[in-house]
């Protein structure tokens, strides 16, 4: 009896490890920098001369580093606004596509495309063309006699423009939502329709609960990715985090500190602080999940 259960389980385990293999492979190259950065976080390291032990000095400096606080603010605002927005858009589009649109594969690819392009220089050019002071948006506003601001060059609006760019790249959560929606048995909806439940009621009582594990997965993934935003900010602002410090993402500031300002010890400490923050958010996420994620098995 016991062997009958454990054999397929062992086979499953083996398959699991097989799938994990690439990760273990990559880990070999990560483990050294990972621990090296932990050490460097407690040193004064300018890249050019050997690191010297500094104890907690780097972490103490963080307390009154106004730029660090600004970069945290930018990153948190960006995450808190853009993650829910992009997940909502992704779910909405996935539900429309799930209705059985003809040429689903084509639509799916088209909507997925921005996710691949968002960090590219071509998008930056396009973004300027649309949101620049003399861009398409302001040309449109000019018809109504309004002179719009520089949506990308004005520190009051630059971050919002980047959030829009993030929301536009809803492709990857959308693909996952789409797969999740396909898993919900059609009979639930048929039964609900029979009982006269409205579309909204069906969404609230069937789609949302049954999709909640997928939403949770997407939420955790997006949150982690959003805190680590680097490429979009880097290409849009040429690595400066400008205008002013309005798009200075945490990782952008970390990069500036480490590579442009010869302060790799501080940059390493920043990396570990970010790890703590992300870990904290993820733990809260998992704890909260108990109250709203519903597993149908």
């Amino acid at each position: 009896m016991t062997t009958a259960i454990s054999r397929p389980r062992r086979r499953q385990d083996r398959a699991g490890y097989l799938f994990l293999l690439p990760w273990f492979g990559g880990m070999v190259f990560m483990i050294v920098p990972f621990f090296a950065s932990l050490y460097l976080a407690f040193t004064d390291y300018d890249l050019l001369t050997p690191p010297t032990w500094a104890g907690l000095a780097n972490f103490r400096r963080m307390l009154d580093d106004a730029t660090l606080h600004q970069s945290l603010k930018v990153t948190v605002i960006y995450t808190v606004v853009s993650v829910p927005l992009s997940l909502m858009v992704a779910l909405a589009v996935a539900m429309v596509l799930d209705r059985g649109v003809r040429g689903l594969a084509i639509y799916r690819s088209i909507y997925y495309l921005p996710s691949l392009l968002a960090g590219s220089v071509a998008i930056v050019m396009l973004w300027r063309y649309i949101f620049g002071y003399s861009g398409v948006v302001n040309d449109f506003l000019a018809w109504f006699g309004i002179q719009g601001p520089g949506w990308a060059s004005d520190p009051r609006y630059a971050l919002s423009t980047l959030i829009l760019l993030h929301v536009w790249t809803f492709g990857s959560p959308m693909v996952i939502f789409l797969a999740g929606l396909r898993q919900i048995p059609a009979m639930y909806y048929e039964a609900a329709s029979m009982d006269g439940a409205s579309g909204w009621k069906q969404f609230r009582s069937i789609t949302l609960p049954l999709l909640s594990p997928i939403i949770f997965f997407n939420l955790v993934q997006s949150l982690i990715a959003s805190f680590q935003t680097f490429t979009q900010g880097y290409v849009i602002s040429n690595g400066t985090g400008g205008p002013g410090q309005s798009t200075l993402f945490y990782n952008l500031y970390l990069y500036q500190k480490g590579f442009a300002e010869f302060d790799m010890g501080y940059a390493s400490a920043m990396a570990w602080l970010l790890l703590m923050i992300i870990a904290g958010f993820t733990v809260v996420n998992f704890l909260a999940a108990r109250y709203w994620v519903f597993y149908d098995n």
Partner: peptide, 18 residues
């Protein structure tokens, strides 16, 4: 999960040194 995704970023930044 967080450590995995994160350490990839870490590696990027740090391994960048070399």
């Amino acid at each position: 999960m967080d450590t995995q995704a994160f350490s990839r970023r870490r590696a990027l930044v740090l391994a960048g040194t070399a």
